[in-house]
Simulated scan of single mutants.
Amino acid sequence: MLRVAALLFMLLLPCVGHAQELLVPHEHHEWASFPEGSWKQVKQVTETFKDGELVSSMTTTLTIRLKEVGQDYIVLEREAKSEVSGQVFEKPIREFRSGINGQSGGQRVRITPAGEQKISILGKPFKCEVRQMEVLDEPTKIVGKVFYNPETPPYILRREYTFTPVGAETPQKQMVSEVIALNKPYPVLTEIKTVAFIVQKTTSSDETTETVEAQCADVPGFVVGTWMTAYDANGKLKSKTTVQLLNYEVAAQEMVPATTKTGIFRNKRNQRRVFDEQQN
């Protein structure tokens, strides 16, 4: 999904001493901008096709909770329940720790500031800070460019990436995502909120994936809707995935100084959203 790809490849700026300067500051991060304890619940439906015919369908309910926010990392807790052919499978609760911009624990990256550049969304220009990036010491060379605007949610307005195996002359996979609309009214449970729409296209030798996503900065994780379609090398439909927001809560906590471990102020938001299941 678009959000998965975005989370994997939003990366850190170079270090200054032992402190790390973040590509996306806490107040602009899809999870770190919310108080610990905030959560969301989504329903994901994936349909698989063969020769144009539906062969299977799986529905998964995911509850994702923000457990911890540090200076340069987050910890998310995930609870999942899937239904396939009428059978329900409950998965154990798992915790995932990642860098504040999605990098894995042992991953090293090099980020190079590349000045400023204007991009256009529906004819309106937006000045962005450009960052070029490269993942180091990996079997696949990953390089990309990120366009960041600190005043316009969802803040990363465009991403470009290529994936090239060691020894290959051309990329094995390419990905481009961009915001195509901003400040659009959209039903988020019982409210109408402002969202941005993002499109992403990922191409490889054996598959092309097209994704549309709605993001709202008021909701933990930002994503409130996803529609993804995958095609094989011959252009035949492989799968369709939709993600629907079922419920969410922004934890209401007072702003207090953080521990010396993080060195920042946490719980910047003091708002709360709770929606009963019968309202969905």
Rank of each mutant, 00 (worst) to 15 (best):
M1S: 14
L2P: 07
L2E: 10
V4K: 13
V4G: 12
L8W: 13
F9H: 13
H26A: 10
H28W: 00
W31Y: 13
P35D: 10
P35C: 07
W39G: 03
K40P: 01
K40Y: 14
K43T: 09
K43S: 10
K43G: 04
V45P: 01
T48D: 03
T48K: 07
D51Y: 02
G52V: 15
G52D: 11
E53A: 08
S57A: 05
T61Q: 04
L62A: 11
K67T: 08
E68S: 12
E68C: 02
I74W: 09
V75R: 07
E77Y: 05
E77M: 12
E79R: 15
E79F: 11
E90D: 05
E90K: 03
R94M: 15
E95S: 11
F96E: 15
S98A: 11
G102V: 10
G106D: 13
G106P: 10
R110A: 14
I111H: 12
P113G: 10
Q117Y: 12
K118R: 09
I119P: 09
I121H: 11
I121L: 07
G123E: 09
K124I: 10
P125M: 00
C128P: 12
E129A: 08
E129W: 07
E129R: 13
R131Y: 15
Q132M: 07
Q132R: 12
I142L: 06
G144E: 07
P150S: 04
T152C: 12
P153N: 05
R158C: 02
E160A: 08
E160L: 06
F163Y: 15
T164G: 08
T164L: 14
A168S: 13
Q172W: 10
I180N: 01
I180L: 08
N183V: 00
T202Q: 08
T203I: 13
T211L: 04
E213C: 00
D218I: 05
T226D: 02
W227D: 10
M228D: 08
N234H: 09
L237N: 01
L237G: 07
K238I: 09
K240L: 01
T241W: 05
T242M: 04
Q244H: 13
Q253G: 06
I264G: 00
I264D: 06
F265G: 09
F265N: 09
F265W: 11
R266A: 06
R269L: 13
R269M: 11
R273E: 13
R273F: 14
